[in-house]
Write a protein that binds this DNA or RNA. Structure first.
Lengths: 121, 121
DNA sequence: ATTGTTGCAAACCATTTGCATACGT
DNA sequence: ACGTATGCAAATGGTTTGCAACAAT
């Protein structure tokens, strides 16, 4: 694993959940880590090949990555003011496993986003 | 619903399962239906807005569409072979409302995708 | 010296948009 | 005549690739 690939892993750790290649890049550059976008894409490709990260897609089709086995949370965002809170995903995780099991699926993961109107709006 | 939108629906019926915009276009043109790719994209966008079609993504990120029922549901997709089943969303809907309520949110909606490994893979 | 790593710029490809033409009422 | 629908060509945006400079063994 090359040096920059290691740096990408640690950036993903810092990001905490899902992040796109471009977001990883911004995060690293903002923290003074000089690296090219191309290198990030190549590092993420390697990490995929080695099953170190999972690849998912956002609604627009953009690829997002996260370290395998990492716990994650979801966001509940207000459509009006943009206020966002993190919510635990224990319940949905359990539910997903149950439902998936009914269809014979294993190793079940998910992406989810919640949005509504907050109390102040 | 415009005339070309109707033609796109019938092409999707003919396609039978999932098809990308480009595939729908080829299918129509091959069968003598003169239509531009742009119009297909616009028709599919309308059909999405009216919940007539489902949008999913192939591994490369390419959008694929299929006709669907009107009920709100989610997809459980195999990471290896791409097999996809629709799952009811009653449970997650209820759960989302409960959790959101704890934070004072109203009118809660969500997006969710589930993925895993199916029994044959 | 050889091999692998990096990053800029250009290429790629699915999708979207600007705009001028053609259609429906 | 008016608003809408259409499609070509150009723009967009995420991702990949060609290539030359660079580092490591």
């Amino acid at each position: 694993m090359s040096k920059s690939t290691t740096r990408v892993v640690s950036a993903l750790k810092r990001a905490g959940g899902f992040a796109s290649a471009q977001e990883v890049h911004q995060l690293m550059v903002r923290q003074g880590d000089r690296i090219g976008l191309t290198t990030i894409y190549r590092a993420l490709q390697n990490l995929l090949d080695e099953n170190v990260v999972d690849l998912l897609r956002r609604d627009g089709g953009e690829a997002i990555y996260r370290l395998c086995g990492e716990e994650h949370h979801h966001h509940l965002r207000c459509k009006r003011c943009g206020k966002t809170v993190e919510i635990s995903d224990r319940a949905i995780e359990k539910w997903a496993r149950e439902v998936a099991g009914e269809y014979g699926f294993r190793d079940v993961g998910h992406t989810a986003e919640f949005f509504g109107t907050c109390s102040e709006c």
